[in-house]
Deep mutational scan, measured.
Amino acid sequence: EPLWIRPDAPSRCTWQLGRPASESPHHHTAPAKSPKILPDILKKIGDTPMVRINKIGKKFGLKCELLAKCEFFNAGGSVKDRISLRMIEDAERDGTLKPGDTIIEPTSGNTGIGLALAAAVRGYRCIIVMPEKMSSEKVDVLRALGAEIVRTPTNARFDSPESHVGVAWRLKNEIPNSHILDQYRNASNPLAHYDTTADEILQQCDGKLDMLVASVGTGGTITGIARKLKEKCPGCRIIGVDPEGSILAEPEELNQTEQTTYEVEGIGYDFIPTVLDRTVVDKWFKSNDEEAFTFARMLIAQEGLLCGGSAGSTVAVAVKAAQELQEGQRCVVILPDSVRNYMTKFLSDRWMLQKGFLKEEDLTEKKPWWWHLRVQELGLSAPLTVLPTITCGHTIEILREKGFDQAPVVDEAGVILGMVTLGNMLSSLLAGKVQPSDQVGKVIYKQFKQIRLTDTLGRLSHILEMDHFALVVHEQIQYHSTGKSSQRQMVFGVVTAIDLLNFVAAQERDQK
């Protein structure tokens, strides 16, 4: 057995438009009618409502009807409940999964919650491996369901041993009777949507819809739904939504950006999952974080739909894509998950301010006199920076000697690579993860907040409520011999709460 199987392995699926269902090699399930009293909570997966979006479509000038398939009504709160249950049931049916076995899954959280929910009911041990950027709410729900959680670096490539995929496979090879159901490759993922989600949409719309818009992560949702719609409703256009920084969209030119990270969760990847059939997507749109969270908040405030950030991405694209539809036509959007997962993220004004998705003037509360002053007023001194090749031991000596707790790590040209902190280095040394002679590049981390000289002290204040420091950066445009230009970030300084307090105190003292 291989040590790991690539999540982007070539698909062996034989589905073709027009091929009889009787030739399918898979076990198919028909939607079942729910009894009045459910035998367990797993029976509350599927049969989610279709809700008309009344205000947002009109606000953006849509002539067509805009409908939302509300997947956050599933038992675990997301569309991923469907595939989690289906993968477990299919693994039980073919004898792969037996009582007492362990389920391991690399996930952005929602599939993990679905699997942990099913594992709690069915009696399996469950280990979820997820990147650090995923919300604390997801972690809390997983723990409450009895799952064990392993976190991995957000910026690790999918084929790196440190990625959530790599760590999951390492655990599988170490733990007896453990299984990775593997949402990236498992046919049960798109089949769950082909058999149930798509049929529900067709039934709820009486077979009449002209466009379907869905955000894409593993691709199982859009693949399964689109294949069924292509068979039953061939005139329906399928629109895929991919965040900026991901590479799922086609044509490839759409993916060209210097951005590699994004805040919206559960969609987009740096590889093409095996289950994603991009041939059934008629057109791709890219979405960005700001519009995703703005539209998610709009869905909550104006439509009462308590959905997550990827739902915002989907609707932001839908109001663009559906401009081509006329009166009497219908566009369906998939709202994948609930706001429950993001209470401390985009639902929080403070978080939105820190990330730059909300401006101070958007909030009406009274601010102190210094709130709208610029960061450049602080008069920061030149920063202490270190090269990635310097040793951890030497870096600790320098920081202690100069009285700093942290320093930016830059390359020879001064471009920011990340940050090192005294606390992080000492804990890594004590844990045996690094040696004093190791290069400081081994303990770089990139989960820090950046701020510009033109940003306000109010925004800085919000950042420092949650973080010990902020890195002050400025952009530099560099022209190359080819005539092309590129933008790079340079370090201007490091600012802490002490710097802000000293500035405010000094100004008030001078005024007296």
Results as ranks from 00 to 15, higher is better:
residue 399 L to R: 04
residue 390 I to D: 08
residue 408 P to I: 04
residue 380 L to S: 10
residue 366 K to V: 13
residue 325 L to D: 01
residue 410 V to G: 12
residue 317 V to A: 03
residue 455 D to H: 11
residue 346 F to C: 01
residue 406 Q to I: 08
residue 295 F to T: 09
residue 416 I to C: 12
residue 303 E to G: 07
residue 371 W to T: 14
residue 398 I to A: 11
residue 301 A to D: 12
residue 387 L to W: 14
residue 446 K to W: 13
residue 265 E to C: 01
residue 389 T to L: 09
residue 476 Q to W: 01
residue 268 G to H: 01
residue 403 G to F: 07
residue 472 V to F: 11
residue 335 L to C: 14
residue 385 T to C: 01
residue 414 G to Q: 15
residue 346 F to S: 04
residue 326 Q to N: 10
residue 366 K to D: 11
residue 372 H to V: 11
residue 302 Q to N: 15
residue 267 I to G: 04
residue 457 L to H: 01
residue 356 G to P: 01
residue 408 P to D: 01
residue 474 H to A: 05
residue 492 F to S: 12
residue 258 E to N: 13
residue 263 E to C: 08
residue 332 V to D: 01
residue 274 T to D: 01
residue 308 G to S: 01
residue 493 G to V: 10
residue 289 D to G: 01
residue 284 W to L: 01
residue 423 G to L: 08
residue 268 G to S: 04
residue 372 H to S: 09
residue 261 T to V: 07
residue 243 P to I: 06
residue 330 R to C: 12
residue 319 V to L: 10
residue 500 L to P: 12
residue 489 Q to G: 04
residue 438 D to C: 09
residue 431 A to T: 14
residue 404 F to V: 07
residue 398 I to T: 14
residue 412 E to Y: 09
residue 360 E to H: 03
residue 427 S to M: 01
residue 326 Q to T: 12
residue 257 T to S: 12
residue 436 P to M: 08
residue 479 Y to M: 14
residue 355 K to Y: 10
residue 347 L to G: 03
residue 492 F to D: 11
residue 239 I to C: 01
residue 413 A to I: 09
residue 282 D to G: 14
residue 267 I to E: 07
residue 280 V to M: 09
residue 398 I to N: 09
residue 278 R to P: 03
residue 462 H to W: 14
residue 252 E to L: 12
residue 509 R to H: 14
residue 376 Q to L: 14
residue 363 L to S: 15
residue 282 D to F: 12
residue 358 L to R: 09
residue 474 H to I: 03
residue 454 T to G: 07
residue 496 T to D: 05
residue 472 V to Y: 01
residue 493 G to M: 01
residue 283 K to I: 06
residue 451 I to N: 11
residue 489 Q to Y: 10
residue 383 P to V: 07
residue 497 A to Y: 09
residue 384 L to V: 11
residue 297 R to T: 01
residue 474 H to N: 01
residue 438 D to V: 12
residue 446 K to D: 07
residue 450 Q to N: 15
residue 272 I to C: 10
residue 463 I to R: 07
residue 440 V to I: 12
residue 247 I to F: 07
residue 429 L to V: 10
residue 430 L to G: 01
residue 434 V to P: 11
residue 353 L to W: 06
residue 506 A to I: 13
residue 321 A to I: 04
residue 483 G to T: 13
residue 279 T to H: 14
residue 421 T to V: 10
residue 404 F to K: 03
residue 249 A to L: 05
residue 333 V to I: 13
residue 488 R to C: 05
residue 331 C to N: 04
residue 301 A to K: 05
residue 395 T to I: 09
residue 430 L to A: 14
residue 283 K to G: 06
residue 251 P to S: 09
residue 417 L to V: 12
residue 277 D to F: 04
residue 399 L to H: 01
residue 491 V to I: 13
residue 365 E to Y: 08
residue 256 Q to W: 11
residue 454 T to S: 04
residue 289 D to F: 01
residue 349 D to Y: 07
residue 394 H to S: 07
residue 281 V to C: 15
residue 432 G to V: 10
residue 484 K to W: 14
residue 386 V to A: 10
residue 295 F to S: 13
residue 456 T to C: 09
residue 428 S to N: 09
residue 477 I to K: 01
residue 306 L to G: 05
residue 320 K to H: 05
residue 467 D to F: 13
residue 378 L to A: 14
residue 421 T to E: 08
residue 356 G to V: 01
residue 415 V to W: 11
residue 341 N to Y: 04
residue 375 V to C: 09
residue 473 V to K: 07
residue 398 I to M: 14
residue 302 Q to R: 09
residue 317 V to M: 13
residue 396 I to F: 09
residue 418 G to E: 04
residue 407 A to Q: 08
residue 379 G to V: 11
residue 293 F to N: 01
residue 368 P to I: 15
residue 283 K to S: 09
residue 420 V to T: 14
residue 405 D to A: 12
residue 501 L to V: 10
residue 441 G to I: 10
residue 245 G to F: 01
residue 500 L to F: 11
residue 325 L to T: 06
residue 447 Q to L: 11
residue 301 A to R: 15
residue 292 A to R: 04
residue 467 D to M: 08
residue 303 E to P: 03
residue 361 E to R: 15
residue 254 L to W: 09
residue 296 A to D: 05
residue 405 D to W: 14
residue 376 Q to S: 08
residue 432 G to E: 08
residue 456 T to K: 12
residue 466 M to Q: 12
residue 374 R to S: 08
residue 324 E to N: 15
residue 412 E to V: 10
residue 467 D to I: 01
residue 451 I to G: 08
residue 501 L to P: 01
residue 485 S to A: 13
residue 432 G to M: 05
residue 314 T to S: 13
residue 266 G to F: 05
residue 506 A to C: 09
residue 265 E to P: 01
residue 304 G to C: 05
residue 430 L to I: 12
residue 268 G to I: 04
residue 462 H to L: 11
residue 445 Y to L: 11
residue 261 T to L: 07
residue 263 E to A: 12
residue 339 V to I: 01
residue 477 I to Y: 15
residue 287 S to K: 11
residue 415 V to R: 11
residue 430 L to Y: 08
residue 428 S to R: 04
residue 367 K to M: 11
residue 419 M to C: 14
residue 341 N to E: 04
residue 438 D to N: 11
residue 452 R to W: 15
residue 258 E to F: 11
residue 411 D to G: 08
residue 441 G to D: 13
residue 443 V to L: 07
residue 345 K to C: 04
residue 244 E to K: 10
residue 252 E to T: 13
residue 297 R to C: 01
residue 500 L to Y: 08
residue 261 T to Y: 14
residue 253 E to Y: 06
residue 439 Q to Y: 12
residue 336 P to K: 01
residue 348 S to W: 06
residue 407 A to Y: 09
residue 321 A to Y: 08
residue 290 E to Y: 10
residue 397 E to R: 15
residue 397 E to M: 10
residue 381 S to I: 10
residue 287 S to T: 11
residue 300 I to S: 08
residue 406 Q to P: 01
residue 293 F to A: 04
residue 416 I to T: 08
residue 316 A to R: 14
residue 337 D to I: 01
residue 492 F to M: 14
residue 400 R to T: 01
residue 322 A to L: 01
residue 488 R to E: 14
residue 506 A to G: 13
residue 287 S to Y: 05
residue 451 I to L: 14
residue 444 I to E: 08
residue 371 W to Y: 15
residue 421 T to H: 15
residue 362 D to N: 01
residue 328 G to E: 07
residue 396 I to G: 09
residue 356 G to W: 05
residue 352 M to C: 10
residue 242 D to T: 01
residue 342 Y to D: 04
residue 432 G to Q: 01
residue 384 L to G: 08
residue 315 V to I: 08
residue 491 V to C: 13
residue 254 L to N: 10
residue 387 L to G: 15
residue 268 G to R: 01
residue 365 E to P: 15
residue 264 V to N: 06
residue 436 P to W: 09
residue 353 L to A: 10
residue 357 F to Q: 12
residue 253 E to V: 12
residue 290 E to K: 13
residue 282 D to I: 07
residue 477 I to G: 06
residue 271 F to D: 01
residue 364 T to Y: 13
residue 293 F to C: 04
residue 364 T to W: 14
residue 429 L to G: 10
residue 272 I to T: 09
residue 338 S to Q: 09
residue 497 A to P: 01
residue 493 G to N: 15
residue 428 S to H: 01
residue 415 V to I: 14
residue 336 P to T: 06
residue 312 G to Y: 01
residue 482 T to W: 07
residue 445 Y to T: 15
residue 483 G to I: 07
residue 410 V to K: 06
residue 287 S to P: 06
residue 426 L to A: 15
residue 400 R to P: 10
residue 482 T to N: 13
residue 256 Q to P: 04
residue 359 K to F: 09
residue 323 Q to Y: 10
residue 351 W to F: 01
residue 367 K to N: 12
residue 279 T to F: 09
residue 485 S to F: 13
residue 420 V to D: 05
residue 483 G to H: 11
residue 306 L to K: 05
residue 324 E to L: 06
residue 341 N to V: 01
residue 493 G to S: 13
residue 402 K to E: 15
residue 291 E to P: 01
residue 281 V to Q: 06
residue 239 I to S: 04
residue 427 S to G: 13
residue 416 I to S: 12
residue 346 F to T: 04
residue 493 G to C: 14
residue 392 C to R: 04
residue 306 L to Q: 07
residue 367 K to D: 01
residue 395 T to R: 06
residue 352 M to E: 01
residue 352 M to G: 01
residue 393 G to C: 13
residue 453 L to G: 07
residue 286 K to V: 03
residue 436 P to F: 11
residue 256 Q to C: 12
residue 461 S to I: 01
residue 327 E to C: 14
residue 246 S to C: 01
residue 256 Q to F: 09
residue 317 V to C: 09
residue 386 V to W: 05
residue 286 K to T: 01
residue 380 L to R: 12
residue 284 W to F: 05
residue 450 Q to Y: 01
residue 284 W to V: 01
residue 281 V to I: 05
residue 442 K to L: 13
residue 477 I to R: 10
residue 433 K to M: 10
residue 261 T to D: 07
residue 419 M to P: 11
residue 432 G to P: 08
residue 494 V to D: 01
residue 408 P to A: 08
residue 296 A to P: 03
residue 471 L to T: 12
residue 408 P to W: 11
residue 280 V to L: 13
residue 415 V to C: 15
residue 368 P to S: 10
residue 383 P to D: 03
residue 365 E to D: 13
residue 476 Q to F: 11
residue 508 E to C: 10
residue 457 L to N: 05
residue 441 G to L: 11
residue 339 V to D: 05
residue 392 C to H: 05
residue 407 A to H: 01
residue 276 L to G: 04
residue 504 V to K: 10
residue 243 P to V: 09
residue 492 F to Y: 12
residue 243 P to C: 01
residue 446 K to C: 12
residue 241 V to W: 04
residue 341 N to W: 01
residue 372 H to C: 13
residue 441 G to F: 11
residue 485 S to Y: 10
residue 337 D to H: 01
residue 409 V to T: 14
residue 435 Q to P: 09
residue 381 S to L: 12
residue 265 E to N: 01
